[in-house]
């Protein structure tokens, strides 16, 4: 499990989880889960296109997910955001169907693009993945304050001169970066699960945004490490565990919020009773 050829897996998975946890915090507070799902799923044919052209798969993923991000950003300026996301997704997948019909890509490879293949991280993928991860985290750090304000309330952002549509586009591009780096590891269908589950839990446990981001990254790390370890032992696909842990985190978060609010109400009532007495 910790043998030589697994070293790459552990390094890459750790980077992917941390970055997904950080970026995922904003996915959750902005309500961008659909985009976070659509970008990876729409981008996976990029890998097929890349193999058609004989270039590195990550390059194809970066291009496709960036095109998707720009498409969603542009189209949602003049229409509903969820409609724009759905349409860009199907257009990218339609292109994907075309590319796949032209390549002789065989089924297992597509399966691993969709559902992830942690055990087969090639050495030459490690560098680009870490590079993309660093860029994504730096971008979030740079955008932190305006992105935060615009996510809390687009109106309050506009008052301070922060353009809502520009912020949306920048953010979608960051999600596109995460997509491209995480897709080969956890698969097109479950990148977003890693981006929504951990932050959904983290936001319940603290009122401080920065603490929540760190916590979210930590939960994502635990999710990924546990998923890989169990997957390695059981031979079951990693995606199953990532999806399951994602849902689990969400329910832990919901449960904790419910408990703490119920407790707070009771405490308030107790104080009032004390005052009355």
């Amino acid at each position: 499990m910790f043998s030589g050829f697994m070293a790459n897996t552990w390094i890459v998975a750790t980077v992917v989880a941390a970055v997904a946890g950080v970026v995922g915090f904003f996915v959750v507070i902005r309500g961008s889960s659909f985009a976070a799902h659509a970008l990876p799923l729409g981008a996976f044919p990029g890998a097929a296109a890349a193999s058609l052209l004989g270039v590195n798969a990550i390059f194809g993923l970066v291009v496709f997910s960036a095109v998707g991000a720009i498409g969603i950003g542009q189209l949602s300026k003049r229409g509903k955001r969820d409609v724009a996301t759905a349409l860009i997704l199907v257009v990218l997948l339609g292109l994907g169907a075309l590319f796949l019909s032209m390549t002789s890509e065989y089924a297992p490879e597509i399966y691993s693009l969709l559902f992830g293949e942690v055990l087969g991280i090639a050495k030459d993928e490690v560098g680009p993945i870490i590079g993309l991860g660093v860029v994504a985290v730096l971008a979030i750090g740079l955008l932190y304050r305006p992105l935060m304000l615009s996510s809390i309330s687009p109106e309050l952002g506009e008052v301070q001169g922060i353009s809502t549509s520009k912020m949306e586009l920048c953010f979608l591009l960051v999600v596109a970066l995460v997509t491209a780096m995480a897709l080969p590891v956890v698969g097109a269908l479950l990148v977003f699960s890693l981006m929504v589950g951990p932050p959904a839990a983290a936001r319940a446990f603290t009122n401080r945004p920065q603490v929540a981001i760190v916590l979210s990254a930590a939960v994502a790390l635990v999710t990924v490490w546990a998923s890989i370890a169990i997957s390695y032992e059981s031979n079951w696909p990693v995606g199953f565990f990532v999806g399951g842990f994602g849902a689990g985190s969400y329910f832990i978060g919901r449960g904790w919020t419910w408990l703490s609010r119920a407790y707070a109400t009771r405490a308030d009532t107790a104080v009032e009773l004390e005052h009355a007495a």
């Binding site: 932190y144 304050r145 305006p146 809390i152 009122n207 945004p209 603490v211 929540a212 919020t257």
Partner: peptide, 23 residues
């Protein structure tokens, strides 16, 4: 949104420098 982890003081702070880049 009550689900966003954000304290009153964080929101007031963003009024001061929310338009600037960086953490």
């Amino acid at each position: 949104d009550p689900d966003i982890p954000l304290r009153s003081r964080d929101l007031v702070g963003l009024g001061f420098d929310g338009h600037r880049l960086g953490i």
